[in-house]
Design a protein around this nucleic acid. Structure first.
Lengths: 289, 289
DNA sequence: TACAATCTGAAATTATCGCTTCACACGCGA
DNA sequence: TCGCGTGTGAAGCGATAATTTCAGATTGTA
């Protein structure tokens, strides 16, 4: 390997060494990237304070990535910033550093952002709020399920809701077990289904049976809307296109996380105690091992 | 004297006073505008040297345009620069129609966008590309795992990679099964781990054992970087903050989907046939019911 | 459990910076 | 020519920043 090219940016040097950084050094790296490169253009004392480490740690990091001291480290940051300011195309720095626009990461990121803003226009926030009210109602049991592709989303939602409240059950991926789970669905229960194309006929059957048993169905689907919507009290249609052979489930995950956050907010009094209890039990479990 | 007008930029203040500047002060103004505002972000000594005046002249200029001293003059320059660098991403057009900005959907969306653009800056795209090369190499077996929270992400990635190539296995969520899976990890295999805070000590152990058996470890983690990074050939650090009691896994999912798309692209010839075969088998299966 | 290796920040030290003072230079009118 | 006002920078003095040292804390290991 040739000797380290001295023209490398601070960001590149940090990434190069990121594997061998200590805890304090990682804090500094995080602080710097949090506002790059401005965060590094203050005094060493101030930079250390912002990252919540000592000044020697800043110095050690600067030396580890090949600078003589803090001033030369800072000089490099200034040089990068100057170069960037003179180059008007630099607005792309918010994407992957120096990767071309056509890089899959950047194309996927654009698609994700468009899906997200498109979905927010598509979704009726009253449906969202009404769904949250259902999820926050502890008198109702929750049943969460998804198709072959979306099942991990259902699992994710179920794990988080379980931390927030009791009475959450995940319907397994394997169809043959479904009748058993249908048995446990009762009046006033809520069935949350992820169903995106291609829609699974068996999910429609399941949702129909659940509804007959008195459950309320909430559907998270794509913009072409699964047939389950006819049975659902609330439908959240999302955009899921991606530059890929398969659809993107980023926005469905976004909705799942938002539902969790909103549900926790809506019933904070009950939830707070439960989370603290969970923490305590986890700690005990860890120590007991 | 009225309180110092903090909204004026240094450039405006200078132009305002440009009529009453002395020779040395005009030299300083010219030097600053020559590379605004970077030229002023060095030490007073250096700035004076560049403009070919003495340091007291710099100080006198700073005071003349209303600053208490050189540091506060410089602070103003930094503030202007920060404001200028603020990415215009923040002002995306309306989110959810007529929902207030404070609605959880909009707050979560902002957080997601910031996490995404922040992560793209944090991730080294060469690590990403190198990871894709590993995933696309059909001679290597892939083992995919995650912690309690991130396991669904591992499952999602595994499902998609399985559609793209053979030799993909998902490490189950239950720790007690792990030794059995370790047995099957061999030289040249690849272990893809999702590990975000709080890091699981058992994942570190597992990764260490896998590495000892000759496997290459790829780590998808958060910006605070899991200790597994020390064992990993490639680390993808991501931003995961959310206005919620728990972290957001939207960006990890984004990376998983991007990895799948890039892997498919990288080995399209092999993948195409496999996907078509899968389609055919699925159809048969459905008809056979 | 003890030992070694590594990491970390408090404190001391050194270097540099920001600022003040003051002597001198210059222009200009008496 | 002198005197006066204004502008300038050399020199020096704290103040602050950068660096070094070192002892305690932490972590991994026998």
């Amino acid at each position: 390997m040739p000797p380290q090219p001295r023209s490398d940016t601070v960001a590149e040097r940090l990434r190069l060494k990121s594997g061998e950084l200590t805890a304090a050094e990682r804090k500094l790296m995080a602080a710097l990237f949090d506002n790059y490169p401005m965060a590094g253009l203050v005094s060493i004392t101030e930079f250390a304070r912002v990252a919540d480490v000592s000044t020697p740690s800043v110095l050690r990091l600067a030396k580890k990535i090949g600078f003589a001291g803090f001033p030369s480290f800072q000089e490099q940051l200034r040089a990068e910033l100057s170069a960037q300011l003179q180059n008007p195309i630099a607005k792309h720095d918010r994407w992957s550093a120096d990767a071309p626009d056509t890089h899959i990461l950047n194309r996927f990121a654009s698609a994700a952002m468009e899906n997200l803003s498109g979905s927010l226009k598509l979704v009726d926030h009253r449906d969202f709020d009404a769904t949250v009210a259902l999820l926050a109602d502890r008198k109702r049991k929750l049943h969460i399920g998804g198709g072959r592709i979306t099942h991990p989303l259902a699992a994710y939602l179920s794990t988080h809701l379980q931390m927030a409240r009791p009475g959450v059950s995940l319907i397994p991926a394997v169809h043959s077990h479904w009748p058993l789970y249908l048995l446990d669905i009762g009046k006033q229960d809520v069935l949350i289904f992820f169903d995106i194309r291609r829609y699974d006929a068996r999910m429609l059957d399941f949702a129909a049976s659940a509804r007959e048993r008195g459950a309320k169905v909430v559907l998270i689907t794509d913009q072409w809307i699964s047939p389950v919507a006819r049975l659902a009290v609330h439908t959240l249609p999302l955009r899921i296109e991606a530059p890929s052979s398969w659809d993107s489930n980023i926005v469905p995950l976004f909705v799942a996380e938002s539902l969790v956050a909103a549900t926790v907010n809506a019933s904070w009094r009950d939830t707070e105690a439960r989370i603290q209890e969970l923490e305590a039990l986890s700690d005990t479990g860890r120590r007991g091992r």
